[in-house]
């Protein structure tokens, strides 16, 4: 089974791995140019810049108002993580434990925001939020970002809830715990690994969520990724190295959380939305 031993089989295996290698090489080079450029002074017709500096980071820090943008990003991401947990985890518990009429329809309702791409529903959503006077402010950005994350938390959490033996809950109820106490004392501690995984995934996805934030953000409610888009869009106004310095700050923010998340979740979970 481990490959045919003739030359055609070997050539095929070699070909497949070279393709993967080529992809990773290009990926690394693409990220590498951004990092190298952000530290370079002048870089024209050579493989590497003439000399290195950290000047562009100072410049990006001041010119792009990075401190403000980072604070807004933290506020948006924090609020999205908190609210999607508060709405999503109880809903996942209800979905996992009860069979009620219309459950399939409700499940479909939760699947749709994950299947329809953000730009498609983002435009009508932004229209409604503008009319409600919420878009252009941080609350509008938070509400828009919650649309995909609440169903995401629900779909990730349902299998985790199903793993808990219902007799544990029955025992707690026998000893007089109401639903609220049951949640705080029994379910949350038992579900902690699942909740942690779901929230880290929400966090990583929200930092990188461009479309919904872009459509609803005003000038003082931009997150890092939207600010980066505007910087690249208006390239030529500022030096490219300064834009790349900002890109590196964005990359670091994302990668730190990705690395933390990967300690608790399987990489495929970032793509495969909580099947099983």
């Amino acid at each position: 089974m481990h490959g045919e031993k003739d030359w055609a089989g070997r050539a095929w295996v070699f070909g497949v791995w070279s393709l993967v290698g080529f992809f990773i090489l290009n990926l690394a080079a693409m990220i590498g140019t951004v990092v190298v450029n952000s530290f370079g002074t002048r870089w024209f017709d050579t493989w590497l810049p003439a000399s290195y500096t950290v000047r562009w980071y100072h410049q990006a820090w001041d010119e792009f108002q990075l401190p403000d943008i980072l604070i807004v990003t933290m506020e948006v991401v924090g609020a999205v993580v908190l609210v999607s947990a508060l709405i999503g985890v109880p809903a996942a518990y209800g979905m996992a434990r009860r069979d009620f009429p219309g459950k399939r329809a409700v499940m479909l309702l939760f699947l749709l925001p994950l299947l329809v791409p953000p730009i498609t529903y983002g435009i009508p959503l932004a229209t409604v939020l503008y009319q409600a006077g919420l878009a252009g402010r941080i609350w509008g950005v938070i509400l828009a970002n919650l649309v995909p994350t609440v169903p995401f938390v629900i779909l990730i959490m349902i299998p985790f809830v199903e793993q808990i033996d219902p007799r544990v809950e029955a025992a707690a109820r026998v000893f007089g715990a109401g639903t609220g106490r049951l949640f705080v004392r029994v379910l949350v501690p038992l579900l902690a690994p699942g909740i942690l995984a779901a929230l880290l995934l929400v966090l990583v996805r929200t930092i990188a969520m461009f479309e919904l934030t872009f459509l609803t953000a005003g000038s003082d409610s931009q997150t890092l990724v939207v600010a980066l888009y505007y910087a690249v869009f208006a390239a030529g106004v500022r030096p490219g190295q300064s834009i790349d310095a900002m890109a590196v700050v964005y990359m670091l923010t994302t990668m730190v959380w990705l690395l933390i998340a990967l300690r608790f979740v399987n990489p495929t979970q970032i793509v495969v939305r909580g099947r099983r």
Partner: peptide, 25 residues
């Protein structure tokens, strides 16, 4: 029929998706 206090926990999420996904659409 499976409708009690626990089922009601689904309601906030349903309400949220209806308000911010179905209604805008």
């Amino acid at each position: 029929r499976g409708l009690d206090g626990v089922t009601l926990l689904v309601l906030p999420a349903v309400g949220f998706i209806v308000a911010l996904f179905v209604y805008p659409f």
